[in-house]
Amino acid sequence: MPEDTFNLAIIGHGFVGKAIDECFPKSNKFIIDIDSKNQIKDLVDINPNIIFICLPTPMNDDGSINSKIIESVFIEIKKYGIDCINVLKSTVTPDVLQKLSQHTSRFVYNPEFLRENTAVDDLINSQINILAGNRNDCLEVQNIFINFSIKKNLNFKITDIETASIIKYTINAFLASKVLFFNQIKEIFDNQNFNGSWDDFLNLICLDTRIGESHINVPGPDGKKGFGGACFPKDIAALINYASNINVDLSILKEIQEKNNNIRSEYKKSNREAEQNIKFTN
């Protein structure tokens, strides 16, 4: 496949879509976003080799994800008979993935592990690369990254879509739990007159590589206690809701969610939290 004939479509151009855009600098790209005039039906003439779908999944009132935007896109792609691999980047639960995969014979789930403020760098240097779906389609997506992207780590792991989804949710739920854990440890320092400082404590404890340096600062990068933003609160709520629907009680995560909601309800929501219908209520 000559590089000058490689056509890539990106549906959704938020921080994930923009990171994909930057990761394929020499490809012919067709971007469909709320701010663009491009439409899915235009892909018939573009004839893309691959479509990356990077759309939002706002929180429903019951904690589940709202996948209506993504579902409508897959229905429209099928309607116009656009025959190529559809790579979903959005974070969705296994039941939603199963439904979406019925709309196309070439479905690959490639969950993202990106921080919003450093998304491009995180994608290029990501340590975990997961592809899920039909093995041949996954291998084709892997080859596309190898041949056309500027990713540095090209070691991909292939699994089923359900496992890939739970991996994504587990990582985010664990990191959110870590945030809240260090918030509580910080309370010890706030309530005692130690000679050492909180910063000294963090510098020393992160020398244990099992703990590491991430998600231990209090307050966090947004200057607030607890965890917020458009990902962690939504993903924990979605995982709790999904587990409840299959009769699994994630009691520890529920308690973490409740404690975090008590903390974050004291703050004004950010624009991103409002856009994703994030609720800090118990």
Rank of each mutant, 00 (worst) to 15 (best):
178 K>C: 00
234 K>H: 02
243 A>F: 07
275 E>T: 13
272 R>F: 06
30 F>T: 05
229 G>R: 03
166 I>S: 00
102 Q>C: 11
135 R>P: 00
74 F>W: 09
77 I>M: 13
253 L>G: 09
146 I>K: 14
69 I>W: 04
114 L>V: 05
95 D>T: 12
64 S>R: 05
28 N>K: 14
165 S>Q: 00
173 A>E: 00
217 N>S: 15
204 L>M: 13
241 N>P: 00
176 A>P: 02
204 L>R: 10
271 N>S: 12
5 T>N: 10
95 D>K: 15
167 I>C: 04
66 N>I: 03
151 K>S: 06
111 P>Q: 07
64 S>V: 09
237 A>S: 14
77 I>V: 15
87 V>G: 07
6 F>T: 09
194 F>K: 05
10 I>A: 08
106 R>V: 02
241 N>D: 05
56 P>L: 11
234 K>I: 02
262 N>M: 06
117 N>A: 14
122 D>I: 01
93 T>F: 03
95 D>Y: 05
154 L>H: 01
61 D>V: 15
68 K>V: 05
7 N>Q: 14
129 N>M: 00
21 D>Q: 02
86 N>W: 12
278 I>F: 04
58 P>W: 07
10 I>S: 05
134 N>F: 04
83 D>P: 06
161 I>H: 01
256 I>F: 06
247 N>L: 09
279 K>V: 14
145 F>R: 07
176 A>T: 00
248 V>P: 00
182 F>E: 02
194 F>C: 05
118 T>N: 12
197 S>C: 09
61 D>T: 15
67 S>G: 11
246 I>K: 12
280 F>G: 06
5 T>S: 12
276 Q>W: 03
149 S>K: 07
189 F>S: 03
234 K>V: 03
139 L>A: 03
122 D>G: 01
76 E>G: 10
127 Q>S: 12
83 D>L: 05
4 D>E: 15
6 F>Y: 13
75 I>K: 15
279 K>H: 06
11 I>A: 07
47 N>R: 15
98 Q>T: 13
103 H>N: 14
10 I>G: 08
198 W>S: 08
50 I>W: 14
6 F>V: 06
98 Q>M: 14
85 I>P: 05
255 E>W: 09
155 N>A: 02
16 V>G: 01
188 I>H: 02
221 P>D: 11
201 F>R: 08
131 L>Y: 01
8 L>S: 06
38 N>R: 14
129 N>D: 02
144 I>K: 06
238 A>K: 07
199 D>R: 05
175 L>Q: 06
67 S>R: 04
135 R>M: 03
99 K>R: 14
168 K>W: 00
198 W>I: 09
266 E>V: 11
71 E>I: 15
